[in-house]
């Protein structure tokens, strides 16, 4: 069954600065707690979780103009997965970051989605600390 989870967070930092980190596929492990490695080769990314699981991903969109990053986990346990990160400029030197997870099985949407919520918190911590 299909499930979808969305988390969003306002960050007191310019959208361009936040996108520079959140839109860099190879740097995911620096702000996503529980991911210890992220390696990019063309449109393929492989992440390794702190539990030691390696997950291959396909990068679908990395759009600097829209500040949108989309990817899908291609490991067979997923019938479907799509992760989307949007960085939305609020025009006041702050932005909102939206991290959406769609997955079948839906249980994985919830499990990954709770990780993305923690990731957004860490992204804000890093961005606002560096401000």
């Amino acid at each position: 069954m299909y499930g979808t989870i969305r988390h969003e967070l306002r960050i007191a930092r310019r959208a361009a600065d936040v996108w520079a980190l959140a839109g860099d596929a190879a740097k995911l492990h620096t702000w996503f707690p529980g991911i210890v490695e992220s390696t990019v080769d063309g449109n393929q990314r492989t992440i390794v979780t702190a539990t030691g699981i390696s997950m291959p991903e396909e990068i679908l969109v990395c759009d600097d103009r829209q500040r949108r990053f989309q990817y899908r986990i291609t490991t067979p346990i997923f019938k479907h997965h799509r992760g989307t990160i949007d960085v939305i400029d609020l025009g006041d030197e702050t932005c909102i970051v939206v991290y959406s997870t769609e997955a079948d099985p839906r249980t994985m949407a919830m499990v990954i989605g709770s990780g993305t919520a923690a990731a957004l918190q860490e992204l804000r911590r890093q961005m606002e600390r560096a401000n």
């Binding site: 996503f32 707690p33 991911i35 979780t49 702190a50 539990t51 699981i53 709770s114 990780g115 923690a118």
Partner: peptide, 17 residues
């Protein structure tokens, strides 16, 4: 703490590891 913990976020699941 939750048992399904893909990102090893909860201490309960990490002690043995």
């Amino acid at each position: 703490e939750p048992f399904l913990d893909a990102f090893a976020r909860f201490p309960e699941n990490g002690f043995c590891r």
